[in-house]
């Protein structure tokens, strides 16, 4: 395990420490999913792998996009693009709370000086057809993580149950580093020759995406892409399990799920453009959920989903 001394000095050091910590605890350190998602939960390493009977342990950073949260880089802690750190362990180990607290210590939070609390917060994702019970974790009154025991995903009961940890990295890092505005946060080591702040890396993109998300994105195209993603997802899942070319049983749960993720993100973009009314909103969420459920149904028919021929 990499050794880190004293307090972390930068945003990336916090990420590196979390990676090292969870690697040390036996998690597969995965890379971000290469698609636009609203939260780390959408990564198939969480959504799909929380289904079925097979054991799983993964940790990763996931860039997440919430177009409606864009503030042109001006708000001290609101961003349309940010990072989540995600841990998923199935079955949830009995000492998951202790493991979690260990991760806080690893990023320099001294348990002897701070007040850590587990405050009731049940999690629900209407687009994923998922819910779980758990807490938001407070450090001196500040929410630093979500802690959830998954009960259902894609309409399927989780058995065994996964324990999920989600850290909002920017907010957590700002707290640990004592920074008031996200853009002022050191991204790499501030002592290094080419020291970069979070603002150096992301201020411009926040502006660009805020403008595009709110005012420019072509909604006709987005609506069309939504329909296409939905249709493609359903088509993929309607095909025979047996691949006519190889003669093998190949259920394309992941490609179908990619389309579901796409539809979900397109919906978020449309929402940010303000072209979805309150009543339509529910209908769109329902359509994404229907896709997520079909993908979950497909995944549990696969080997990774616990299917035994």
């Amino acid at each position: 395990m990499t050794q880190f001394d004293g307090k972390p000095r930068s945003f990336q050091e916090i990420i590196l420490r979390l990676q090292a910590y969870w690697a040390d605890k036996g998690c597969a350190i995965m890379q971000p999913y290469d698609m636009e998602v609203g939260a780390g939960t959408f990564h198939p390493a969480t959504t799909l792998r929380s289904l079925g009977s097979k054991s799983w342990a993964a940790a990763y950073v996931q860039p997440s996009r919430r177009p409606t949260d864009g503030r042109y880089g001006e708000n001290p802690n609101r961003l349309q693009h940010y990072y989540q750190y995600q841990v998923l362990i199935k079955p949830s180990p009995p000492n998951l709370q202790e493991l979690y607290l260990g991760s806080l210590a690893a990023i320099g939070i001294d348990m002897e000086m701070h007040d850590i609390r587990f405050v009731e917060d049940d999690w629900e994702s209407p687009t994923l057809g998922a819910w779980g019970l758990g807490w938001e974790v407070w450090c001196d009154g500040m929410e630093v993580s979500q802690f959830t025991y998954f009960q259902q995903v894609g309409g399927h009961d989780c058995h065994p149950v996964s324990g999920e940890l989600t850290y909002g990295l920017e907010r957590l890092a700002m707290y640990v580093l004592g920074v008031d505005h996200v853009m002022d946060m050191p991204f790499n080591d501030p002592q290094t020759e080419i020291a970069l702040t979070y603002g150096d890396v992301f201020r411009q993109t926040e502006q660009e995406y805020s403008r595009w998300n709110f005012d420019v994105a072509n909604t006709d195209v987005l609506f069309k892409q939504f329909e296409e993603a939905e249709a493609e997802c359903e088509k993929i899942l309607s095909l025979d399990h047996e691949d006519p070319k190889t003669g093998k049983r190949i259920i394309m749960a992941h490609p179908a799920y990619d389309q579901c993720i796409k539809a979900s993100h397109l919906f978020n973009l449309l929402d940010a453009r303000g072209v979805i009314s309150v009543t339509e909103r529910q209908a769109y969420i329902g359509r994404v959920r229907a896709l997520a459920k079909q993908c979950a149904d497909a995944f549990v028919q696969t080997e990774a989903g616990g299917y035994a021929a």
Partner: peptide, 18 residues
């Protein structure tokens, strides 16, 4: 009012019972 399962077990409690 709301209970849950955890780990690989089937017992239900409000949060994991230790």
């Amino acid at each position: 009012p709301k209970s849950m399962r955890w780990g690989a077990g089937s017992l239900r409690w409000v949060r994991p019972l230790h």
